[in-house]
Design a protein around this nucleic acid. Sequence first.
RNA 1: GUCCCCGUAGCUCAGCCGGAUAGAGCAACAGUUUCCUAAACUGUGGGUCGCAGGUUCGAGUCCUGCCGGGGACGCCA
Length: 592
Amino acid sequence: MINIVQDVRAFVVAAIDDLISQGVLPQGLDLARIAVEPPRDPAHGDLATNAAMVLAGAVKQNPMALAEQIAPAMMAREIETGDYCGHGLVVTPARPGFLNIRLAPEVWHAQLRAVLRAGTSFGDSRLGAGERVNVEYVSANPTGPMHVGHGRGAVVGDALSSLLAKAGFAVHREYYINDAGAQVDILARSLYLRYCEALGEDIGAIPEGLYPGEYLVETGRALAARDGGKWLDRPESEWLGPLRDFAIEEMMALIRDDLTALGVHHDLFASERRLVNEGAIDECLAALDRRGLIYTGVLEPPKGKTPEDWEPRPQTLFRATQFGDDVDRPLKKSDGSWTYFAADIAYHRDKFRRGFANLIDIWGADHGGYVKRMQAAIRAVTDGKAALDVKICQLINLFDKGAPVRMSKRAGTFVTLREVIDEVGKDVFRFIMLTRRNDQPLDFDFAKVTEQSKDNPVFYVQYAHARAASVMRHATEAFAPAELSDTALIDAPLDRLTDPAELALIRQLAQWPRLVEGAAEAHEPHRIAFYLQDVAAQFHMLWNKGRDEATLRFILASDPELTRARLALVRGVAIVVASGLAVIGVEPVEEM
RNA sequence: GUCCCCGUAGCUCAGCCGGAUAGAGCAACAGUUUCCUAAACUGUGGGUCGCAGGUUCGAGUCCUGCCGGGGACGCCA
């Protein structure tokens, strides 16, 4: 009875099966569409099912009449099996044909016990059944430190990975290093200048088209320290390769540091260059070619915004249109090297060959136009056996006290991810990243996110956990520590929890397993952040009620048994909050 | 021109494989406030869910068209 909603649904189906075996309802009904969910209006009970409305058509009865038959069948089953404490289930047919289900308080008390028993593993699910999922995220070019936009992708990918793991998937986290394209050559040239600079040469301004970032100054010095002046008067053809290797290694070290600071880790850093060197791209495209999916053709110029230097030219194209894309896509550049797309096809094929049919990529907003072609390519390359879901992360708008923080790489007012983390802390950054859906732009205000007030969701949720811990600390004045452990509190007289606000809070906690499954299926980690805010709000509300009404306080010197029951609830809140924060990757605090 | 995302209260946004009278925070208004942790609390008002059709027992949610905002659109990644 870990997932109450799932459990009740099974019960509803069982009751309908009873009616079928009694001959009241016909055989062969499709029960798949039967849903059980908590109604919006609490007056409609704890849970509601649409069973009667869904079956009405097949049974040729009106939904209300059918509901009138199912309701007693459910209650009869309950009395017979005692699944919900016996007589603990009241089913009421309602207007269009809903069946409103009210569960006895004992059922909810049992839920709270389940929370205490499970600890932060409460909400773990077997939904994924161990299926392998590959989540690729960040994949920032190794040309400099990460910016806040990368940070968003990092958090979304990391939280989604943890969420899927909690839901029972075998998650593999990957970072794709774009270390083979023209960008890393530019990086190498930029480094060469800094290297010369480190050896005392006057390099003047960094030319247009190279990376001007200060972060390369130190890399230049490091290179000078390692190699001395050996590259100084050599032609580019000699130093380009070695400097590129050095630069990539240094940049990746920088990026890994940033990721560590953010608490993000990957299982695999996959190198594009390695795929190129191993011939994986040639092999992959040869395979496509054999199937007639590659041809030489001339593309229409893009409508609306035709580049000035446009000229029709035959290209090596992939028949993406055969797999749902809008146009066929180029695989080779004019200099004969593979496009990024070509390499990416090979990379995704490689993932599939490593045993992943369930692929998720986290991309920045600027890659939105790339989704269809990648999905098309994956269909082609895996024969439709793998599916790719792409989560697009929208931009972050930085503010400070309401004033926009202008960012420009050229003007040097570029804000790196590291600066933000150092300023507000990784936990704040991570939580805020999930306070919007990933495909929605996000405002990030340095002043607001560190504010200690109800308006700040991070603070609000953290404070709920800290407040729970505080209550437990207070309780040590009246109880021995052994009496306050979660195992001890399982045996507290939970039937003393009768206030509607207390029961509402337990119901909220009991939603956690269902929320995990829903969020995991939808690939939407932000739901966790929203849920935690709801839990925190209910908990704070209950705490505040104790200010007006002393009898509702958690700790009552006059009634140790009731106090223990309420402490069990307090612990339940702390456990669920901690369980949710663990998925997001935020440390729950004991005090603030 | 094509494709993708978005359009929900004055503002910022949720809305869980369609479900019953569409929610939260902020702002506004009205009150309360020395209380287990203080960084407030309680309550009230406020929405043709961009527009128009369609699908069905039922649509903010699905389909089509339009309007508006953002983004992408050969040899960048």
